[in-house]
């Protein structure tokens, strides 16, 4: 399976764990009048279980599009994406919604929480939408980890930006999804608060075995990941394992040349 990926992208991907999400030959075209934009150009990539991957690249490189397509929020023009062993191209809108609800977690840059719901209700939201009750023990663990136990009854507008993002991560964790997608989760935060969130996500991977895919353009954010994948012009151009802020920065400089 990953052999194909190596051939097509000229990347070396050591397969050490089962795959939580993957893309095969993912291509996405946008048509604006006469011009055609190739947002994704035959991307193949695997995201292994229990690992923290950062997708990096300059604006317009297709990193967000890739994430949206793998998460089932957007559709590919050609190619395929899978969550676990389910291929998303076989699913209709209803099944996609169910898949997102049950197997995918989201953390967005801003506006992650429903303002009318309390912290606790926001955390339980996906389960509530499914009409199920989340595992109480697990929920307690998540809430404990988030460290917002005393704020469960508060509304989002009573929290700081960092606290809101923590709740967003907790919501993503609560559903025990196959994979969590985070889209610039620290983009709106100062570096100290951002660092806390990233450390929190890191510990979710290390201690809970969660799989996280994060889109970012911040080398420091990427340094919290196990692996950084670089996109440019809709293609994967490189990747680093166990990235540091410095190595990522150097890499970006090379890409810029």
């Amino acid at each position: 399976m990953s052999l194909l990926a190596i051939e097509e992208t000229n990347q070396i991907q050591p397969v050490t764990a089962p795959v939580a999400a993957s893309a095969r030959n993912a291509t996405k075209l946008y048509r604006t009048g006469e011009t055609e934009v190739r947002a994704l150009d035959g991307v193949s990539v695997d995201f292994e279980q229990g690992r923290f991957t950062a997708i990096m690249g300059p604006s317009g490189s297709g990193k967000s599009t890739l994430m949206h397509c793998i998460a089932g929020l957007d559709q590919l023009t050609s190619g395929s994406v899978s969550i676990g062993d389910v291929s998303l191209s076989d699913l209709n809108e209803k099944q996609l919604t169910k898949l997102r609800r049950d197997h995918v977690g989201f953390v967005f840059q801003a506006f992650n929480l429903i303002p009318t719901l309390t912290v606790e209700e926001n955390i339980k939201l996906p389960a509530a939408l499914a009409g199920t009750t989340p595992d109480a023990g697990w929920l307690a663990t998540v809430i404990d980890t988030v460290g917002l136990g005393d704020r469960l009854g508060h509304r989002p507008d009573e929290l700081s930006g960092g606290q809101r993002q923590r709740v967003a991560v907790a919501r993503a964790l609560a559903a025990q999804p196959k994979v969590i997608f985070a889209d610039e989760p620290t983009g709106n935060l100062d570096s100290r608060t951002g660092g806390e969130i990233l450390a929190f996500m890191r510990s979710a991977v290390d201690e809970m075995g969660q799989t996280i895919v994060m889109v970012t353009h911040d080398p420091i954010a990427a340094s919290y990941a196990d692996r950084a994948v670089f996109l440019a012009d809709g293609r994967i151009v490189d990747e680093i394992h166990s990235p540091t802020a410095e190595s990522v920065l150097n890499h970006m400089k090379t890409m810029g040349d």
Binding site: T97, R100, R101, G105, F106, F108, F111, L113, P126, R171
Partner: peptide, 12 residues
Amino acid sequence: EIGLLRAVGMSR
């Protein structure tokens, strides 16, 4: 808000 709800699994 509706977009977010839909993203985290609210059906149409």
